[in-house]
Structures are given as structure tokens and as C-alpha cells.
């Protein structure tokens, strides 16, 4: 059922002395207080190699692990199109044109963005919903939030309750 060949690595250097009672078993009667203390110390300290004798130690870099990065999404054609569309809508709006989009187009865009944003938040990829404090006015935000809640038949107190219960 097996082959008797030995492949395990042999000790490459003299074994480091480990803190602890390993290799020095207690008698059958049980362990002495000193062994116990040593063992507990070893458990606390973990494997602690003996100090090297000479002061000049070689520093060897084993690994470099770089900092975690936030999910960096590179620009892509869909985002480029979206930016263009946003810029076009902004330009029309600045020129007094509120009717650049049909209600159907507004609804579709709003729903798509709402789902996309919520999915990102839930996946833990949290970024502010608009770029800064001045991207939209407070009144804009209230009108939109109110309309969204109404659309899904929710009351403001339900929003408050959900935020408090879910910690969002």
C-alpha cells in the first residue's frame, strides 16, 4: 500500500531551540508546574527562534505586499457615453430646455441608475451618489427622493425605520 522511500527534507541547519516543553515529555504521572508554565509561555509567545549569536544580521526581504486599492474602474465606452449624455443634458438644461428627454427616457434612465447605484452600495463599493455638495440642490434632492419613495409606495417614516434597522 505504500512505498518506503523517504522524500522529506532533512534539517538544513541546526534546529532552532523552541520555547516550550516539546521533546521533553512529562512523566506518566503528569506534568510539573515548571513544564506547565513553560508550555503556557510557549503558547503565548508562539514559535520564538533563539537569538542569533552575531550582531551583524542579514536582512532578507521575503515579500512585498502592496496596499489594498479601492475598486478602480477604468473608463470604458459605456461610461464615456454616459458622461457625454450627462454633459448634453446639462447643456440643454442650462439653455432652458427641460424637455430634452421624453418621460419614458427619463424613467428608464432613472430606474437603471437607481438599480446600479444600489447594487454597488450593497456590494460594499460605496461612493457618493453625486460628485459634490453642489451637483444638485437640496430642493432637487428632496423632490427626487420623494418621487422615488412614492413610486415604490413607501412613506418617509418607513425610510427612517429601514435606515435605523439596517444601519444604512
Amino acid at each position: 500500500m505504500s512505498s518506503p522511500k523517504t522524500t522529506k527534507a532533512k534539517a538544513a541547519k541546526p534546529a532552532a531551540k523552541l520555547v516550550g516543553a516539546a521533546g521533553k515529555p512529562a512523566s506518566d504521572e503528569g506534568m510539573s508546574a515548571k513544564d506547565k508554565a513553560n508550555f503556557i509561555k510557549a503558547m503565548m509567545e508562539g514559535l520564538k527562534p533563539a537569538a542569533a549569536a552575531e550582531p551583524a544580521k542579514k536582512v532578507e526581504i521575503l515579500r512585498k505586499i502592496s496596499a489594498p486599492v479601492p475598486v478602480a474602474r477604468k473608463s470604458n465606452p459605456t461610461s464615456d457615453d454616459a458622461l457625454k449624455l450627462a454633459a448634453a443634458l446639462d447643456a440643454k438644461f442650462a439653455g432652458g430646455d427641460f424637455e430634452a428627454l421624453t418621460p419614458e427616457a427619463t424613467q428608464a434612465l432613472m430606474a437603471a441608475l437607481c438599480k446600479l447605484y444600489a447594487a454597488n452600495m450593497e456590494a460594499g463599493d460605496k461612493f457618493p451618489v453625486v460628485k459634490d455638495r453642489f451637483a444638485v440642490t437640496g430642493t432637487d434632492a428632496m423632490i427626487l427622493c420623494g418621487a422615488l419613495l412614492k413610486a415604490v409606495d413607501l412613506q418617509v417614516f418607513e425610510l427612517g425605520m429601514w435606515q435605523s434597522w439596517s444601519g444604512v
Binding site: 522529506k8 527534507a9 532533512k10 534539517a11 532552532a16 516539546a22
Partner: peptide, 13 residues
């Protein structure tokens, strides 16, 4: 790698 060190140090061979 740290397990291999234990194997050497404790002579599990």
C-alpha cells in the same frame, strides 16, 4: 513554510 520549519526543528522525519 513555517510548518516545514517545525518539521525540521522537531525532527518529524
Amino acid at each position: 513554510a513555517h510548518a516545514a520549519k517545525q518539521t525540521r526543528d522537531k525532527k518529524f522525519d
